[in-house]
Amino acid sequence: MQFVIVAGTPSSGKTSVMVHTIRHLQTSGQQVAVCKIDCLQTNDDVTYRRLGIPVAVGLSDYVCPDHFYVANLEEIEQWAGVQKADVLVLETAGLCHRCAPAVYDCLSICVIDNLIGINTPRKVGPMLSSADVVVITKGDIVSQAEREVFRYQVESVNPQARIMEMNGLTGQGAVSLKNTILNYPQFEGITGKRLKNPMPAAICSYCAGETVIGKSFQMGVVKKVEFESVDQC
């Protein structure tokens, strides 16, 4: 099975990019299953279901979505196995830019768009820097110059990645992405594989539902802002 992990900045066109790509995978005779991980609510499952493929949704709700995602990888793989999928697409949303979903041996795709700002690639962090493929969308509505500068910024954050420009509306570029997916080495069994980047510690009383402000309500791993000292005149 091909295990494909898709992440990206909000509204960058992750689902549109994948819908076009999945259509081409279907044309090539591949059985595709999609699992969508989100925080509170998603409509993307409806979009995926229109392709006539099995779709599962996982909502992290009160749990950190990144940790929820990692804790469910085995179950998602099993589910895809039951669906007899050749390609499993796992789309994750709600990532806070500190975590990255990339797992060694899985093809990880990061979708990012030209409109998010020229310096944003540097702020996105490991989600972008550890991706195998970076798909840049919305290139049709910005100038040639901006596209070139933006791509350069992406390259400087992740020089190893294969960078693809794609149009989420027309699907231009989707066949190249399909080929990249099919040419990526397959594997069986996600158990024992490793995350490329460790997820940050987030084990404090607020993770467990505390709402009151104040030191005496804080337990576990608590990090404080370090304020620069101000010289007194």
């Binding site: 409109l115 020229i118 049709d140 509505i141 040639q144 070139e148 500068v149």
Partner: peptide
């Protein structure tokens, strides 16, 4: 160059052109 293209970044002309020239 197309009719649909716009500049979306918040920068002066010289800052932006200098960036493009570097790229």
């Amino acid at each position: 160059v197309s009719q649909n293209m716009n500049f979306v970044i918040d920068m002066t002309i010289s800052e932006f052109l200098m960036m493009h020239a570097q790229v």
